[in-house]
Design a protein around this nucleic acid. Sequence first.
DNA 1: CGTGCGCTTGACTTTTTTCAATAAAGGTGG
DNA 2: CCACCTTTATTGAAAAAAGTCAAGCGCACG
Lengths: 228, 228
Amino acid sequence: MEIVDQIAAIPLFQGLQRSQLEELAMIVVAQKIKRGQIIFAEGDAGTGFYVLTFGRVKIFKLSPEGKEQILHIIPPGEPFGEVAVFAGEPFPAYAEAMEDGYTFFFPRAAFIELIRTNPSLSLSMMAILARRLRKFAAMIEALSLKEVPGRLADHFLYLSSQADKNGWLTLDISKNQLASLLGTIPETLSRILTRMAKEGMLETSGQRLIRILDRAGLQELAAGDRRL
Amino acid sequence: MEIVDQIAAIPLFQGLQRSQLEELAMIVVAQKIKRGQIIFAEGDAGTGFYVLTFGRVKIFKLSPEGKEQILHIIPPGEPFGEVAVFAGEPFPAYAEAMEDGYTFFFPRAAFIELIRTNPSLSLSMMAILARRLRKFAAMIEALSLKEVPGRLADHFLYLSSQADKNGWLTLDISKNQLASLLGTIPETLSRILTRMAKEGMLETSGQRLIRILDRAGLQELAAGDRRL
DNA sequence: CGTGCGCTTGACTTTTTTCAATAAAGGTGG
DNA sequence: CCACCTTTATTGAAAAAAGTCAAGCGCACG
C-alpha cells in the first residue's frame, strides 16, 4: 500500500485533503520496531510524535528502584508522544514496543505547520488530548480513592464488553503488565484474583482467560461497597 | 474594565485579533462565584468551558465515602472544564470555588467555531492540554511509585522557588487540602511533617509557613533513596 | 466568649509490599 | 517433538506503610 493511503487510514488524519495527506507523506519517517525496543526514553528531546500502525506500545514511568507504572497502552492507529510536541518539552515517559510493529514518525515543525492551516486536524488532536486527560483523571481517582480490588474490578468491568459469547474474556496483556497498569505488583494482583475466585465473582482458565460470574459483586467492589 | 479587555488579558486568547475578541465578548457569560460553590459536578453536561478571572477553583474527584482527590487547583487566568468541550462528554470531575471570585463561561459551539478559524488559539489550547497531561502523568507516577513522604518532599521542592528571602514559604492551601492533593489524609500528612521536622529537614511556623533546612535530604526522599 | 474547624497525636487495624521459594507455561534449538 | 531454559504466576510469612477511630488542642470568627 502507498504510504499516503496508510496515512489516510489513520483516524487522526480523517478530514484532511489529499494534498495535505501528500504533504504528510513527504515528511513522515516509517520505522520498524521490535519487541522490547525503547522508542523513546523519559527526558529525550521531543522532536516529533509517532503514530503506531502495527503492534502495541506501552507508555510508562519508571521508579528509581525499577518498578514501572504503565500510563497507557497504545493500540494500532493511535498517536503517541504528542504531548512533547505541543508542550515543547522532553518526553515525559518511556515508550517501549510490546510486540514487533511499525510506526510513522512526524517531525515537529512540519506537523505544527499543518495544524496551523487545518482546523479539523486541530479538533481531532484536541479530542485525543481531551480523551487522554479524562483517562488519566480516572487513573488518578482509582489510585487515590480505590484499593487494588476495586481497581481490578473496574478493569474487568471495563473489559467485560469484549467477552465472547460464552462470557470468557481474554486478557490482552500479561498479569505482570496488568499489575503495572493498576499501580500494584504481581503478587498482590495474584492474591486478589484468587480471593475474587474464592468469592465466586469470577473464574479463570489458563493464564489469560477470565469469566465474570458475579457482575454485581464486582460492581460493589468497584464502588467500595464491599470488601474481599 | 471593558469585558473585551478582560478577555484580551487571558493568556489563552493571546494572539487573537480584536474582532475575534469582540466575538468572544458577545458570547461570554460572566459569573460571580462564592467560596464553596459547586461550579459543576461530575457527570454534568459539558455545554462549555470556563476561564477563571479571579479567585481559585479546585477540580476534584469524590469517592463514595466522601474522600476527595484534588486533580488541579486553577489559578486566575486559566481555563477549566475544557476537557468536556473537546471530548463531547460530561464533566469528568467536580469544580468548586475555593474563594469568592469571577469566571467567564464560553458556550461550546461558539468556541469551537472560533477555534476552527483560528490556528493560534488551537495551538494555545493544545499547549494547555499537553501541559495538563504532563502534570497528570507526574501525579500518576507519584501516586503509584512514591510513598507519601516522597510526594510531600516533591511538593515542597516544587514550591521552594517561591520562598521569601529568608527561605520561608507560605502554603497557599490548608493542610487538609494539601493531603487531598497528595492523595492521602490529614493525619498521615501531619505525622510525616512531624517526622521531617524531627529529622531536621524543615521547620514550620504557624500553620502555613515552612522553611526547608535540608534540601538534599528532601531530594533523597523524593528519589526514594532515603526513608523517614 | 463559645463554637467550629483545622490540626495534631495515640492506639489499633487494614492493606500492601517485600523477600523467598516454588510451580507452571511458553518459546527455542536440537 | 521433546528437553531445556526463561519468563510468568502463585503462595507463605513477615514487615512496612497508610488508614481508621477517637480524643484533644488552639486559633479564628461570629
